[in-house]
Write a protein that binds this DNA or RNA. Structure first.
Length: 491
RNA sequence: CGGGGUGUAGCGCAGCCCGGUAGCGCGCUGCGUUCGGGACGCAGAGGUCGUGGGUUCGAAUCCCGCCACCCCGACCA
């Protein structure tokens, strides 16, 4: 068993950090709050990217790229936007270094101060809307449906691998529309796209909802989100889609001529998911033995481990495996054959379990004789000896079952940890003891929301879109409420 | 930014209180035996003790400064 991994029950946070490092996903770098994403971790991110990119393009979006640096003045144009991001911006002030006169090393050349400071983008609305102004004159120029894959920097006080790093990778969509309705539809459509991705690919159930005013994106009229529940009972915001109204069009003076020849401001949306999804993926499925990956995101879905004594046996197995590997690959399955002689089978079993490979095939002399292989599932840790005949169909079937099973397990967990609560005591019980989502009535005021946050650290994760109209009383103030919202402690 | 902690071999740590030959485990290299759940034996390699100063005959160890990272808060995707 994996002797070196801290158990979740012992110290969840430590378990997470160790897992990220030991599964070879990422590590801390010499740069404060910034991580190195290692090849295995990056391969998973690339899988996410590929599918998201496909989905964006299938819905009419195209990719483009905007500058990393944003002039400071752009930032101040949209008031609430600057308020939201000012406290966490990295600022470039100089463009040159020089050798210190006293020989003490390299120093910033004070003479090379920039006339206007550049902000390292924490998000790109401002630079993009400044650009869109020149692209849009007429209703014929709309809509603009652009996505950008990029890195952004937010100078967070405290960072954690994948969940909150100073620099992170993401995609940000920025669309421009002629009408409010069209922009709102785009916002909702992207929300659905994100939810489909989370559930269909990451096997991670999410709740679609809308943020309260105080949790809204800086500069948005509405922020929609998908919220997931992690195994420790904390919520994680997995993606957001913002309806920006005409705020940025007004701030950057982006107008278009309507069919009737009238001048109107353009309607905007923006939306994004980040490498934080990696954290979500890890904390949704993984166990005390290590990472558990849904087949749709695994860098390789099947690993084959040979069991042999001596060169001759290995040679025989190599021949058999290359046949199997080829036919698996023809069926669209990604396969790694690890016949390194430098590690023993037991070591490899543990290694690939730690790395979350969905299916493992072990093949030894016994199997060659019996025309069989040993098939082991990562999600259930169950092993079975199966015939080589029909192996491809069996593997395809197992992979599908793993994907489905992971989703179901995560969904069951979430359902079991969603508590409708109707009193303050029940609320505290959920937030402070049980963990999970407390589904409760709220009087709709920012004051009460803030008060609850101060008292319990729980925030309103979202007002669920599926929520039914239901008369009730706010759990904190007893004032009337028209529907339940979701409270939780969050990452 | 406030509180706490840690910097000693690639990794994890001991040594520091009480100054005097720099150590352990894992990993690494070589050879041999092993190989169906993290093998074993033998032989090896590897260190400006974070950094700058001070005290001392002598500093990983004592004193002062600095830097970095980690954890807990406030901030946040």
């Amino acid at each position: 068993m994996s002797k070196n991994l801290t158990k979740r029950a012992e110290d969840y946070s430590k378990w997470y950090n160790e897992l990220v490092v030991k599964a070879d996903l990422a590590e801390n770098s010499g740069v404060r709050g910034s991580m190195v994403i290692k090849p295995y971790g990056f391969a998973i991110w690339e899988k996410m990217q590929a599918e998201l990119d496909r989905k964006f393009k299938a819905t009419g979006h195209v990719n483009a790229y905007f500058p990393l640096f944003i002039p400071k003045s752009y930032f101040s144009k949209e008031a609430s936007h600057v308020d939201g991001f000012a406290k966490e911006c990295a600022v470039v002030t100089h463009y040159r270094l020089k050798n210190a006169d006293d020989g003490s090393g390299i120093i910033v050349d004070e003479e090379a101060r920039l006339e206007e400071e550049l902000i390292v983008r924490p998000t790109s609305e401002t630079i993009i809307w400044d650009t869109y102004r020149n692209w849009i004159q007429s209703y014929r120029d709309l809509p603009i449906l652009i996505n950008q894959w990029a890195n952004v920097v937010r100078w967070e006080m405290r960072t954690r691998l994948f969940l909150r790093t100073a620099e992170f990778l993401w995609q940000e969509g920025h669309t421009a529309h002629a009408t409010r309705q069209e922009a709102e539809e785009e916002t909702r459509m992207i929300l659905d796209l994100y939810a489909d991705f989370a559930e269909g690919f990451m096997a991670m159930p999410v709740i679609k909802g809308v943020k309260t005013e105080s949790e809204r994106f800086a500069g948005a009229l509405d922020t929609y989100c998908i919220e997931a529940l992690m195994q420790d009972g904390k919520a994680l915001q997995a993606g957001t889609s913002h309806f920006l109204g005409q705020n940025f069009a007004k701030a950057f003076d982006v107008k278009y001529a309507t069919r009737e020849g009238k001048e109107e401001y353009v309607w905007a949306t923006s939306w994004g998911v980040s490498t934080r999804l990696m954290g979500a993926l890890i904390m949704t499925h993984s166990d005390d033995n290590g990472l558990v990956l849904p087949p749709k995101l695994a860098p390789f879905q099947v690993v084959i481990v040979p069991i042999y004594r001596g060169e001759d046996e290995l040679e025989e197995i190599n021949i058999k495996v290359s046949e199997i590997k080829q036919s698996l690959e023809q069926a669209g399955i990604s396969v790694k054959y690890d016949n390194r002689d430098t590690h023993k089978p037991g070591w490899k079993f543990n290694e690939y379990e730690l790395k979350g490979v969905p299916l493992r095939i072990a093949i030894g002399p016994r199997d060659l004789k019996n025309n069989s292989v040993e098939l082991a599932r990562r999600d259930t840790l169950q092993k079975e000896v199966v015939s080589m005949d029909g192996l491809i169909a069996k593997v395809l079937d197992e992979l599908e079952q793993i994907q489905t099973n992971l989703y179901k397990k995560a969904l069951d967990f979430r359902e079991a940890n969603m508590y409708p609560v109707d009193s303050w005591d029940e609320f505290l019980e959920v937030i402070e003891k049980k963990g999970g989502f407390a589904v409760a009535h709220w009087d709709g005021t920012a004051e009460t929301e803030e008060r609850i946050k101060q008292e319990t650290k729980a925030t309103i994760r979202c007002i669920p879109l599926k929520g039914e109209k239901e008369e009730g009383k706010c759990i904190r103030t007893g004032k009337p409420s028209t529907g339940r919202v979701i409270f939780a402690k969050a990452y």
